[in-house]
Every structure is written in C-alpha cells, then in structure tokens.
Design a protein around this nucleic acid. Structure first.
Length: 600
RNA sequence: CGGGGCGUGGCGCAGCUUGGUAGCGCGGGUGCUUUGGGAGCACUAGGUCGCAGGUUCGAAUCCUGUCGCCCCGACCA
C-alpha cells in the first residue's frame, strides 16, 4: 500500500482533549479511530487492518477447535428475550440493551449478546445427541448502552466481539469442551502477542456455573485481580474468596451500652471510643428489587474493617429467590428510609433491629433479610448499632440474636489476605483489562427456550451450553496499553496493521526513488504486509508518524542509496542498522520470525 | 443517577470578570527557499462562538432554559 494513493494516515499533531489513558490517546493521535459520539467510534483503514489481523488469529484457532463461523442478526425481537426472562433486566432501569419499536409497534432490542438467538436456532437444528457437540461463533458488532462509556474502545457502546456458543449432550462433555476453549483462548492471546492472566470470575448477568476471565494486566484496567505469587490462585475481585485478617479481640466492656453522640461512621466510633474497626460490626441497608416488582429490604452485616462485595450479595439473593433479582441498591437516602421505616436511627442500626421498624404501608416486604458475613459471624464479642440514636451496644456473638439470619461470604477479598487456613500465601493485587470470558452456562437457556435433543436413551433432554467471548476491539487497545513508549505505539507484529514500513527520505532524488520502488516491489511480491510512505514530506515528519503508528519494522532509504545501502530499524528495540539492500528481505524474514515466535 | 468541568474554524486553546460585532498556535491551499527527527518566509481559504429564548442601541461575553461531551463517584477513612 502507498500512503499517497491508497492508504491515508490521518495522524494528528495534537491529541484531542477527550482522551485520558495512553492507549486511547495514541489511537486518536495515530489516526486509528475517530469519535462519532460518546462511546461510538469509526475504525479507520489502519485500525481495520488491526481488527482483521486479530479476527484472523481468532478464526484460525477456533476453526482448529471445531467451531463453525456464522453471522447472527443484531436486531432481536423482544419475545425471544422475554422467553429467557432477560428482557426486563436488560431494558428496564440500568439495563444495557438499546431497544426500539418498529412501525407496527413491535418491540426489538439491539443485541448486546446472542444466547437467545443461537439457542432458538440450536433448538431447531439439533435433534439428536449424534449431532453433538457443536460450537458456533461469529465476529461482529455488539451494542451495549453502558452506564458510563469511557477510555475509547475499552468501554464503548458499540464494539466488535467474537462470541461463541457450544452445545452438548452432557455436563461432562460441556466441561471438557470448556477446557479446550480455555486452551484455545490461551493460544489466541499468545498469538496476538499479549501477556494475559486467566482468573476465576463472577458469571454476572449471563448466568451459569464455572466462568473464567482473561485479563491483560495494565494499570489503567477497570478490574482488580487478586492472585498469589506462586500462581496457585487468581481471581477477579468480584469473585475472589479469602480469609479475612484476624480481628483485634475486644476486651470485655463493663457496660452493654456505649454512648456515641453523632458518631455514625466506623471511623468516628473508633476514634472516640478507643476501638478498632475489626471490633465493630457495620450494618448496611440494601433494597433488592425483583422482576415481579416486589422489594425486599436487606440488612448486610460485616466486620467494620471489611467491605461488602455487592456482586456476591447480589448472587446470594438472586439464588435464594430463584433468579428474579433485577436491582440491588444501597439505601442511604434519608427520604427513602423515612418513607419506609419508623423508629429507624440510620447510623445506629444493629443486626437485631426488629421487623416492626418497617412501615405497614411500605412497599417493602415486612421482614428484614439479615445476611451476615463470616468475618462478622465469627466474632465472639463485638460492638454494633444500638438501634437507638446516639447509642451503640456490645453484643455477645450472633447466636444471642433471636432474629433469623443467613451466614455467607459477602466480603471483598483484599490484598494481604491469606487464601485459606492451610496456606501461608498472601493475595497480591493488580489492575486488569478483561479481554475474554468463558462460561459454562449449563441448561439455563435451553430450559427457558425449550431447546431439547434426543439422548441415547431415547429421552428428550435440555441441551448443555457454554458461551465464550473475546473483545476484539478491546484487544487492540489493550495491546497498545501493553506496548507503547513516549513516541507512540509499538505493535506486536502479529496484530500490527503492517509488518514493515518503507520510509524514503527524499523522493526527489532519482536514485532513492528507484531503490525505493525496487524494495517495495520485492517485499510485495514476497507477500509481506508493507506500507510505503511515499508522501512528499520532510524526513522528520515521516519518522514521527512512523514511530507513532507503531509498525514494528522500518526501512529508511536515504543518503546511502547510492551504494545500495539502507537502514533497518526495529521499533521496539529502537535499534538501527545499515544494510545492503540485497540482504534486506532476508534480514526482515529472520527478524520478524523471531518476533512472531517470541509470543507464539 | 449524584458531583465537577467544558462546548469559540479540522486539532489544541485564548477572549467572557469589566458587553462594542472574534483571535493565537498547529493543520489546509499557493509560491519560493529548505530537505535525516513534526522547516522558514510570503500570500490565502476556513467560524450563524452548541442550541433556543431574554436583557440591551449593541451579546462569544450578562440572565433563563435546553442539548451535548469529558472526568470523578455511586457501602468506607
């Protein structure tokens, strides 16, 4: 390709002010993407080449894993999503599905994911266990109405994703295929030249049993990963389980009541009463809203120095009430408290506050769902709210509390925690960018959508399913986050828009021009992805652009053309060598081979 | 959703406090010179100052409304 005739670069002198993180800045400055609206981007020709390289790597690996590629519609009828009981959750409230009505008034959603569509197709084409296992995948644009789009392609409202869905006759077959996919994913990311780490993850709104996320580690990542140095454990913070640090034992208080005027926070109470946060049980109030519009008030109790993990709490409640929980929200607004409760001194609530505090005319269920984290339930003596304004109380363990409560893990693991009793290994923390996620869905969707097959025993059974996603555009940006320097991007060669860039410094010189054309032709005829910067610009301009767009190798044609010599520059190593033009192709082949093999 | 910030040529910004009819750098075009790390000089094109009302003789500037974008937060010390 020639820059002047077929491949305009569109690099910018200044970075648009909207960008915050380096990869986003470089994508904009390098002319890879252009913002059309919040979270909506155009992929320019140079970007599309990156996307296609990534797609090809994915395609090759999945085809080797016996997956078949197809293309599904993006406009989904509401009825399909109502069958899986996801329509409400995905459209109402903070739902992320764009939705619309056609001229007949029929409702549609713009696909954020494709379980419904693929499952309904599978139910039609799969009749017998003999056809299984099967796995379909596609690479296409997904739409998600994110609460807050940000960081360019990292969290955009329109993005390219590879999604795959597998179908099985047994749980066992699903989990063995899941393992194959895990392996395929590792290969894909390695073949993209990325360093990734696989972590245990929450399966979130998609639902299902086992689930693993693949993370590119980067400081700008939106997720927290907890892991052990030895690699024995790695999990997303949403999912991570650990042992809370030991509490500082509370000395016996002679008084049951502690006067705590205006001391509503853990910090205030500790400061004023010579207590440690680990000696206090804090009670956080949530309201759980269900699909059938019912609302259950929650008292979540946890040791004062620990934090509640809302994802764990959500999943726990969801499971208890058969998956109809839409929304879980902290209640801290006084007006909500006043409208629904009576005699409820916010800031001084204890785990034993009685059910009569909920007003008769409130929408809320008339008893508190009390959930106690292990960190709190294991305390033999602790301080908590006295259920009386300006008073806290000393409790002698939860077993003395007459109200019913549920004990579970609703705590955020944190760095420094031990992973379990037997091990001395401490958790460390890093930020990560989620670029892939695999799930064992089980039979959740096949049940709801009535997707059955005839098994060996002649019985109709629900299909077992897995689903597997990769953020294609997110990989591109994550790769930059991992591979850049002060001058710009430095692509891994596997996903670079071109393998090599030819920079003639002065095309008015007929000798340089002739040599440039010869080299360009030679590379092209050897099927090498080569870009020729044939612009009539000063050398400095081309060098700056070259470093910015980050193609891994540059050939600089200049003064030494007269001796048939050029320079060969490695972007990542920043090393420049002089070389005879006849040896150039061999040099490139051997150098690029090293680079291709380094990560794959 | 809550809080903060910002909307002025393609990009980055100034001007707004104290109203007088829009400016700088980069980028674009033309010409000459230059030519190995974002060249110099000269000329030049390009903006209903986000939008709508209002105040005023006069509004980018003041007032009201509205739309959009960006950032932070959404149990916490």
């Amino acid at each position: 390709m020639r820059v002047t005739t077929s491949f305009p670069l569109g690099t910018l002198r200044d970075t648009p002010s909207e960008a915050e993180i380096i990869s986003h800045k470089l994508l904009l400055k390098g002319g890879y993407i252009r913002r059309i609206n919040s979270g909506i981007y155009a992929y320019m020709p140079i970007m599309l080449r990156v996307i296609e390289k990534i797609s090809n790597i994915i395609e090759k690996e999945l085809n080797n894993t016996n997956c078949s590629k197809l293309l599904l519609p993006q406009l989904h009828p509401a009825e399909l999503w109502k069958k899986s009981e996801r329509w409400e959750g995905y459209t109402a409230g903070e739902g992320i599905m764009f939705n619309l009505k056609d001229r007949q008034g029929k409702e549609f959603g713009l696909a954020p994911t494709h379980e419904e569509v693929i499952t309904s197709i599978a139910s039609e084409i799969i009749n017998s266990y003999k056809q299984l296992p099967l796995c379909f995948y596609q690479i296409q644009t997904k739409f998600r109405d994110e609460i807050r789009p940000r960081f360019g392609l990292m969290r955009s409202r329109e993005f390219i994703m590879k999604d795959a869905y597998s179908f099985h006759s047994s749980k066992k077959d699903l989990s063995s295929f899941y393992e194959k996919m895990e392996k395929a994913y590792e290969n894909i990311f390695k073949n993209c030249g990325l360093n990734t780490v696989g972590v245990d993850a929450d399966s979130g709104a998609i639902g299902g049993a086992a689930s693993k996320e693949f993370m590119v580690t980067a400081d700008s990542g939106e997720d927290s990963i907890l892991f052990t140095e030895s690699g024995s454990y790695a999990a997303n913070i949403e999912k991570a389980v650990s042992l809370a640090s030991k509490e500082i034992p509370l000395k016996k208080f002679h008084d049951e009541w502690i006067e705590t005027p205006n001391q509503k926070s853990i910090f205030d109470i500790c400061q004023n009463n010579n207590l440690d946060a680990s000696q206090i049980v804090k009670v956080v109030i949530f309201i759980a809203k269900f699909e059938d519009k019912s609302e259950i008030p929650i008292l979540a109790c946890i040791r004062g120095d620990q934090n509640i993990n809302e994802v764990k709490l959500f999943n726990l409640i969801n499971k208890k009430y058969n998956s109809n929980l839409i929304h879980l929200k902290i209640v801290e607004d006084n007006s909500i408290i006043n409208n629904n409760t009576t005699n409820f001194p916010l800031g001084f609530i204890g785990p034993d506050i009685n059910d009569e505090t909920i007003k008769i005319n409130s929408n809320w269920e008339k008893s508190w769902l009390r959930i106690v984290d292990y960190s709190a339930s294991s305390l033999s003596i602790f301080v908590s709210g006295g259920n009386k304004a300006n008073f806290h109380k000393v409790f002698q363990t939860f077993s003395f509390i007459k109200e019913k409560f549920l004990i579970s893990d609703i705590r955020n693991a944190k760095k420094g925690d031990l992973i379990n009793i037997e091990s001395n290994e401490e958790l460390k923390e890093k930020r990560g960018i989620e670029i892939g996620h695999i799930f064992q869905l089980g039979q959740k969707y096949s049940e709801k959508l009535n997707a059955k097959f005839s098994d060996k025993d002649g019985q109709l059974k629900n299909l077992w399913m897995g689903c597997y996603g990769i953020g294609v555009t997110r990989i591109a940006q994550a790769a930059i986050e991992q591979n850049h320097d002060e001058n710009g991007i430095s692509w891994p060669i596997q996903i670079s828009p071109f393998e090599i860039l030819i920079i003639p410094t002065n095309l008015k010189d007929p000798i340089q021009k002739k040599l440039t054309e010869e080299i360009y032709k030679e590379f092209k005829s050897n099927k090498i992805d080569v870009l020729l910067d044939d612009r009539d610009d000063r050398a400095g301009v081309k060098f700056k652009d070259a470093d910015l767009i980050g193609i891994p190798f540059q050939i600089i044609i200049g003064r030494d053309s007269i001796n048939n010599e050029v320079e060969f520059f490695s972007r990542s190593r920043k090393s420049k060598i002089k070389i005879a033009s006849k040896n150039l192709l061999d040099k490139f082949i051997s150098e690029s081979k090293v680079m291709y093999n380094k990560n794959s």
